[in-house]
Nucleic acid binder design. Structure first.
Lengths: 219, 219
DNA sequence: AAGCCATGTGAATGGTCGTTCAGGGGATGT
DNA sequence: ACATCCCCTGAACGACCATTCACATGGCTT
């Protein structure tokens, strides 16, 4: 077989072709890039593909972005920034109780990963294709989100609101935080509106599991 | 910038260059493919890269595999098959108690994903690049593993050994199983022997969290 | 009316890709 | 000694890539 660079990637998420209302070209490019990257993956989606999907030709991309790499960073960074903001907001608005904070955090995080599956998928799966400097920026934001969670767990454990699992007498709140995040993040890989749970129900379920996992005292 | 197909992918896992003991060429190719795919991702790793890493040239690949695609399927399928076998075995050897079965399942699953990070990473992250027929095969095995877990949860809930979380009066054991699997699978994305927990400690921690999440009655 | 700027086109550049294939040993069996 | 195999090499093939560039186009301001 002769090379086919456009080899089909089994779509992890199928997206409706998106009838585009007339929007500024930059937005159209962003939107097309999101769906294409989500469906087939950054390295096999060509600049020509993206631009054809907006009814333009290859060259026009470079009037809006310096490179394909910058385009990827742009769309990931905006999603990631918004997520970080939402998480901070959720915790800030949940009062002083660590259990309430954890529940609010997980709820917001899961709802977003259900609702914006395409964006979440790209932000999480394609991050590795970014060039060095650009990837650092995104990782910082991810670490920040993880640290919010670690903070909640730490306070909860100190105050006796949580009784997190320990092994051989030692606890590792960072590992627990990673476990919870992995769980919530990857909802975007398989959740579909066809399932038996709505987005809000998923959020409740996951918040419940998280509270159980950290041993939140039931009031 | 002119195209660089070998663009660096930020390594999700860094792997020692692997001093290869003399082994049959097929094995050497498999090993090289694993590390290269894990470090940089299937689509940007070229056949030339893989073969150079074994001290051979491009053409030689085709004496052992029909295509690059078949090579990927081969290495993923063997890992996946082994994982499925281990999971069945763990559950079968854990007696009749659903809690013991769940703990054994999670323990084996986590230890494997810590120890064989490279293989797990490739099997999970690169699966989407397989062509249609080949991907189905792997997905079947994944579903089989999920169904083992759903089976444990179902029996546990029926017998009252578990009290799984419910939302609005309804439970969704499949969603819970997916949550647990996502959690355990993605250990391979961040766990490193440098952390504060050993593989066995990670396994214990995760088994504990799983038991808590499904509401296993403490004996 | 004239000039400017933002935005688009599509050919050209210089390179990489997976795969094929004719030919070259070195071992093994006769 | 010879034939037969397996495994290798490295050039060749046809295709496609991201990016650049000389050139249009059409709306805005002067």
């Amino acid at each position: 077989m002769t090379p086919k660079r456009n080899a089909q990637r089994a779509p992890a998420v199928t997206v409706a072709p998106e009838r585009d209302p007339p929007r500024p070209p930059v937005e159209a490019i962003r939107a097309a890039a999101f769906t294409q990257f989500a469906e087939r993956g950054y390295p096999v989606v060509t600049v020509r593909d993206i631009m054809k999907a907006c009814g333009l030709t290859q060259g026009a991309l470079y009037n809006h972005f310096r490179s394909k790499d910058e385009l990827l960073h742009d769309i990931i960074a905006s999603t990631q920034g918004e997520l970080e903001r939402l998480c901070q907001q959720a915790v800030a608005g949940a009062g002083d109780d660590p259990a309430a904070q954890l529940a609010a955090f997980v709820r917001v995080y899961v709802v977003r990963h259900c609702r914006l599956r395409v964006e979440a998928l790209v932000a999480n799966r394609e991050i590795g294709w970014l060039s060095g400097e650009r990837v650092a920026d995104i990782r910082r934001s991810r670490r920040a989100i993880r640290d919010i969670l670690v903070g909640i767990l730490t306070r909860g454990a100190e105050r006796g609101a949580f009784d997190p699992p320990r092994v051989d007498g030692r606890g590792d709140l960072k590992a627990i935080a990673m476990a919870l995040l992995d769980q919530c993040t990857h909802v975007s890989m398989w959740y579909g509106p066809g399932g038996m749970l709505s987005e809000e129900q998923m959020a409740k379920l996951y918040a419940d599991m998280a509270l159980r996992a950290v041993g939140a005292r039931t009031k």
